[in-house]
Design a protein around this nucleic acid. Sequence first.
RNA 1: CGGGGCGUAGCGCAGUCUGGCUAGCGCACCUGCCUUGGGAGCAGGGGGUCGGAGGUUCGAAUCCUCUCGCCCCGACCA
Length: 555
Amino acid sequence: MRFSKMLIPTLREVPSDAEAISHKLMLRAGYVRQLAAGLYVYLPLGLRVINKIHAILKEEMDAIGAQEITMPVLHPAEIWQQTGRWQAIGDEMFRLKDRTGRDMCLGMTHEEIMTWLASREIRSYRDLPQMWYQIQTKLRDEARPKSGVLRTREFIMKDSYSFDASEDGLEKSYRLHEGAYHRIFKRCGLNFYQVESDPGMMGGAISHEFMAPSPAGEDEVALCDKCGYAANVELALSVLPKVEFEEWEFEEIHTPEKRTVQEVSNFLKLSPAYFIKSILVISDSGPVLALVRGDQDLHEKKLSKIIGNHRPAQKTEVKDILGIEAGFIGPMNQKVRIIADTILEKGCYVSGANKPHYHAKGIRAGKDFSTEWYDIHVAKEGDGCAKCGNRLRIERCIEIGNIFKLGTKYSVPLKAVYLDENGTEMPVIMGSYGIGPARIAAAAIEQNNDKDGIVWPKSIAPFNVEILPLNVKDVKTVEVAEKLYKDLTEKGIEVLMDDRDERAGIKFKDADLIGIPVQVILGEKNLKEGLVEIKDRRTKEAVKVKIEEVMIDRV
RNA sequence: CGGGGCGUAGCGCAGUCUGGCUAGCGCACCUGCCUUGGGAGCAGGGGGUCGGAGGUUCGAAUCCUCUCGCCCCGACCA
């Protein structure tokens, strides 16, 4: 392609409402434009990158035997009502009515529709297994679109679904996807981790996320470099740094107006690790007192798995239910259900004395209170790995893909069943697997850029080579540029030629910004000696080669 | 949905507190000259319902009310 014929609106200045590096660079380099919050136009360069990623996705999905199909984006409500997700999902689903008043929605994902298809077309164990995928638009009315194309309201997803006759079959399909995902992200030039994740509203028991480390990400993962434990902090387990306990006798201490752990800690000159933090929450089945160590934070998602939906109690509720003002609550003599973090099983602690302006010292589990034990704290940097004890690292990441074992969550309500060898009707066992191509592109930029712009991995760059004829008024320069352009293109190399009548400086700046991996620079002086320059975008290293050797060097 | 910030030319911004010349600057854009190895230089030029509606006032980008949009933090999140 000729630069002069292509829409590549590079920007000298950064649009003020871009924050993430990938967002700034995609805008500046002319890859995307924003239509509205969470809605993006992909310009020619951007589309080329996305298409490169799609091609890799298709190759790797085809390679594990998945079959490409395509499904509607507009769905009738009935199918979503049958699985319960019409009700379960809130404002995040775009809903509308057709002209006859029938409820419809825009697809945020396609479990329901894929399962609907399976229910009609799969009859026998002989039809299984099946893996179907599509590269299709999803719509979600995100509460907060952000960071450019990283979180949008309309986006493309590669989503695939597996249908098996047995758990073993599901395991195989799951492993096939796992392998394909590793190959895909590797081919796209990304650094990434596979981590354990929370299945959330997808249902099912086991799921993993693929995470590309980047400060622009929205997730945090806990990583153990020794044993390889890797999990989203939404469920990561950890053991806490030990503290040396003293053999305190139980005593009440006057702590006037000292309510928070920090205040009492300062007042008593005692580390927060010696405190029990007591938090009252209101669950659907009544109040629950959650206990974590004073230097820890309560993990609400972990608690939800134990007691279901809950919310923090209001101050008046605390007083009504426990008979004491918040700030002086302790776990002793409580009638409500208590859930405590396992770390508190051992040790001797300080907590509220259930008496205004008093705290109690010398509290021990078993002696002073009884409880149910769970890991309910947030894993933090420096905690011990729950598997091997080694120090955990926490890293911020972009979620670029995920894989779920769904089981029969969708096949049962939608009656996707088959007859087994004995003629018994059985629900199909399913898995679902997603990848966001735009997130791959953004993560690739986040991980590969410098002060001058993007440095694309070769596999997903919009072009392989950019030719820079520095002075298009020079006959020799144009002659050589045209010949190189023709020869390289005929060899199947994708070439962008900056044929604009611009100054050299502008061409260099734009080339670096756009980030095509290889630059072939044609300057008048070098050409007189029969030389051109080949420059690596990443290293900025340039070598001079004879004009006729450009081909050899490249091919 | 809660908190914060911002809407003035294609982009980046000043002007708003304290109402008053014809609404400014840089970049980009158009014309000409010049220039061609890192976003040049000179000269001339085009482009604005100051997000929108209503109000106060002799007079509103500026003050008041309402409203729409965008960004950030949090909540939420297949």
